[in-house]
Every structure is written in structure tokens, then in C-alpha cells.
Design a protein around this nucleic acid. Structure first.
Lengths: 232, 232
DNA sequence: TAAAAAATTTACAGCATTTTTACATTAAAT
DNA sequence: ATTTAATGTAAAAATGCTGTAAATTTTTTA
């Protein structure tokens, strides 16, 4: 596969050899990788890098991998794929029930990992307003979540990371009103709950780029006092 | 775990021993099982039983398991968990990319299978296509509490935060008479117990927006001396 | 390391919503 | 039928929320 999704992955793994393997293996497939070599650091990276998913080794030096999962799940639903040397069934069950989305036993092939990443991406994109290929279309606006491409009138539009992220959250919940709090938590993480200021700025930028008449938006609608929503 | 979800599963598997194993193993955990011993029959069962998910053996006598997946995916997004004796990586990738949600290599433990079923359930529960029953309809009036949208005659109506809140309280208690006190407490908080003035203003605004003949309301009815109620 | 891009901060104009105020209308009671 | 209490409507003033541009800092890229 030669898709270059430009997605962001946080890898939490203490073994440098496997980190190296993932860095090159996933890197050549267009992923942007951030690494952490212990659980503490991993939780922080997950918070600040806003990854599309997380690859987590259970055997970490400083804390139990299951606790890392629980900690992340306190504020986020980012897909987590677990890697582990332990093929013990109880470990698998524990990790999956703590909130992991998949579990691979070492040794594993890069091809299988990539296939399971694609499964995770399908899941996080699924929405009734999207066709089977995870492409959202409404009027002149088209968003391809898999390829990370945005079009208006068949013309590709470049978005910055935050702009794209905001749009993708709106697309994944097309039609629904999303509160300021929810959007801020999804995009800037749990610490920026009150900066609803940011939202206005990025919303304005998206309208400039995507709306025909930015002052009278067709797609990116304001619900004053509540939040925003994408009309479809 | 003691979840007894009463979910429906279709098992597509030719080996009677494994069917037996799944029937008892899953049966005791509260699942309702329907069985098919070949691909053709499996596709039909998937169509008529409307299962919550499908467990599929790849090594079927009549057709390739990957084609079964593709056939089902033409019309449905039901989670499919694949079982296979083949640990070959290419097979895994092929099945996952065809639309399978997970892949277990035989032999596998019942505990792991159950844990992966719980993961699949988390995914399909999280996506809104199933859990979307909060739509109130009465005549030309339609209120979607999940999306926070209001329609009259299929025409969307914009409501301000307080207008919407008032309407949603009425919708959640449709048919019941709600006292002034109760409504004021729900919407403005316990401190504004006596400003029944506000209610009249917002009730009037709602009627202007939602009733065909605001002076002779069909839905938003006054119970003089008591409060208001929404007819349905 | 310098240049470019992006994120954050700052500042201000404009808009929507809520609340206040004033007055008209309808329902209940003697 | 008349009076009184309760309800409905309209518009103004006050408040809080939103949109945009531009300057500054930070991060990324070449």
C-alpha cells in the first residue's frame, strides 16, 4: 500500500530495537512518529501530540501498561494498539478490558500491524453520513479522512494540523452540535477547557478556506452559547 | 465479567467441534447463537438474523472466507471476528482489509474471544447509528435531542439556548403538565422560582417559531394557573 | 542556522441573546 | 357583564458571546 496518510502515532516502548523497527517501518508508510520510552512520558506525549493512535508495549520499566491504558482512557478515546511479549490470555483480557482496541503478540509482522491500524482507522471514522470509504461529502465540500485531504469544488485545500483536526472532529459528528468544551478537549486536550477563544479563531480560518461566503456559512454553523456543528 | 448482553451472534464455521465449543462457551455468557456451516448459508443467516456480530471461520468448504466478508460488507457494517487456523500474515491482512474487525488464530481461548467481542461491542456502541432513538415527533414538529435540532415540516428551525432548553424539558415530559415552579427551576435554576414572567416570554417565542397558528397552539398548551404541557 | 509555517496572544468591532420594561389580551370568578 | 387575575406580545436596554485582523512567539522545515 502506498497511502501516505500523514497520521500521527505515539509509540510507547522501552526496547530501542523495536522502536527503531517501528520508526522506519511506519515512517516509510507516511506516519509521523513520536516516541516515549516509559509510561509516564507516554501519557504526556499522548496528551500533547494529539496522535491519531497509540502503539503501546505492555512491558514498561516504570509502570504497568494496563495502568497506562486506564490513565489515557480517563480523558480520551484514541485507539490504542497493544504490543506484548506475553501471550498469556489473562494479560490480553486485562489490556483489552482496560480499553485497548487490539493486542498483538511479539513477534509480529509489519504488514499485520499496518492492517490492524487500518482497522482502527475505519472504526474511528465510521459515521452514517460517510460512505464506505470514509469520505464525507456535502455540496461542494469533500473530506477524505483516510487520505487526510480536503476539497472544495474538486480543488484541494491545504489545512494546518489544528485546522484539519477541528474539521475532522466536526465531520465525524456531522449534523450534531458539539459543545465548546467537547471540541476543546478533543483538539487541545483536557487542560484547555476554557480557551473557547481558540475555537473562534480556527473556526474563522476554516470558513475562510472552505465556505463560499465566509460571513454566511453553509456548512460550519455556530450555535451561539453552545458550540458548533457541521451541516450536511 | 458478568455482562449478559443478550446479543445475537451468527457463527459461520464448518467444524462441528468448534461450533459446539462456541455454542456452549458463548451460550453460557448470555449470547443467542445462530449457526451456519458454510459460506452461502452464513451470508443468508447474517441477513435474516440481524446479528450484533458475526464470528467467521476462514476455512469454509464452499467458498473463500474473504469473499464472505466482502459479500456481507456490501450491505452491512456488522462487526466480523475471524477465526482461522492459518497464521500466515498475508491471510490476516487480506481478511482485515476485506472488512474484518479482528482476527484470531486457532487455537484460541474463550476468554480472549469474549474480550475481543467486548471490544467490538464498545466500538459499535460508541458509533451513533444504533443508539439514536431520542427523536420526538408529533405532527409537523420534530425534535432530535441528540443532534440538538428542531424541525417543523422538515424545515429546520433555529432556537436560542433558553428556547431549546425549555422545549427539551417539555419534550422529555411530553404529555405531562409541568408547573411554572418546575420549569423555572429546570431552566433558570432554583433562584428564579417566582419569575414566571420569563416563561411566558419564551413560551410565546417558541409558539411563534413552531406553531402554525401561534395564537391557537396545537402543541404548546397552557394550563392556566398551573403551567404548560406539550401535546403529542 | 535561517527561513517558513503554524500556533498563540492581543485588540477591537459586531452580533445574538437575555433581561427589563411597557402594554395588550385572554381566562376565571362573582 | 364586570372585575380581577393570569397570560401573551412587542420592543428597548443591557449583557455576554462571536468573528476577524494583525502582531508575537513557538515550532517545523530546508
Amino acid at each position: 500500500m502506498t497511502t501516505s496518510p500523514n497520521s500521527v502515532i505515539v509509540v510507547i516502548e522501552d526496547d530501542p530495537a523495536i522502536r527503531q523497527f517501528l520508526r522506519t517501518g511506519l515512517g516509510t508508510h507516511g506516519f509521523k512518529i513520536f516516541e516515549a520510552e516509559n509510561g509516564q512520558r507516554g501519557i504526556i506525549e499522548a496528551g500533547i501530540r494529539k496522535p491519531d493512535f497509540i502503539i503501546l508495549d505492555l512491558g514498561l520499566p516504570d509502570m504497568d501498561g494496563v495502568d497506562v491504558i486506564k490513565k489515557i482512557r480517563e480523558w480520551s478515546a484514541i485507539p490504542i494498539i497493544v504490543l506484548s511479549a506475553r501471550s498469556n490470555e489473562q494479560h490480553k483480557i486485562g489490556a483489552l478490558d482496560a480499553g485497548a482496541d487490539d493486542y498483538l503478540t511479539k513477534p509480529f509482522g509489519l504488514g499485520e500491524l499496518l492492517a490492524r491500524i487500518r482497522v482502527a482507522m475505519r472504526h474511528s471514522f465510521h459515521n452514517p453520513s460517510q460512505s464506505q470509504n470514509n469520505i464525507f461529502v456535502s455540496g461542494a465540500l469533500k473530506v477524505d479522512l483516510l487520505k487526510r485531504q480536503v476539497f472544495t469544488n474538486e480543488q484541494e485545500v491545504h489545512l494546518t494540523p489544528i485546522q484539519y483536526r477541528l474539521l475532522s472532529v466536526l465531520v465525524k459528528n456531522a449534523g450534531k452540535v458539539l459543545t465548546h468544551q467537547y471540541l476543546l478537549k478533543e483538539i487541545w486536550g483536557p487542560s484547555h477547557k476554557d480557551n473557547s477563544h481558540y475555537l473562534r479563531i480556527y473556526m474563522s480560518q476554516l470558513r475562510q478556506k472552505l465556505e463560499i461566503e465566509p460571513t454566511q456559512p453553509q456548512y460550519l454553523l455556530t450555535e451561539s452559547g453552545i458550540g458548533y456543528r457541521l451541516k450536511f
